[in-house]
Amino acid sequence: MGFDQFVADRLDRLLRYATAITCDKHLAQDIVQNVLMRAQSKWERIGAMDAPYLYVKRMVTNDYLSWRHRKAAREIAVERAELARHVPSMADPADAHVEREAMRARIAVLPRKQRAALVLRFYEDCGDAEIAQVLGCTESTVRSQLSRALQTLRAHELARSTTLGVHS
């Protein structure tokens, strides 16, 4: 597959993926652009692979997880945490939209790697092995990242329904 064809086919999906793991569309756009520039110069190799998309996704993920974006990620997390604090008090538990936004805010404050694992599982529908490939870690690390993420989200969910239960 040629580079231009790859971009035409996959750009939107890559942007969605990058936005989901970064929780910031501007950062996501920067990362995807930079990665595609780099990918282009190596396209002879990447294009000949069995799964170019997987490889490019890995580049995007690595770039986000690298030290360069640590600060940006922290700022986004702080911002989202602030938002998340206000959501439960306004929440009507029957409102699916509010529920979803609350979950979004909680996902946004997870550690970066946990969130990446979560997105790969629940958005990209990857198995443990594929996630391990993208994250560059072992499958058992993938499982522990996922279970820690789910544990955190579940704890919040419990606390929230309890609070809402008491007040209603």
């Binding site: 942007l15 929780c23 569309k25 756009q29 936004e101 979004r104 997105v119």
Partner: peptide, 11 residues
């Protein structure tokens, strides 16, 4: 749903 909503915000 939450992740899909986040992804929807893409550039």
């Amino acid at each position: 749903q939450a992740i899909a909503a986040e992804a929807e915000e893409r550039a």
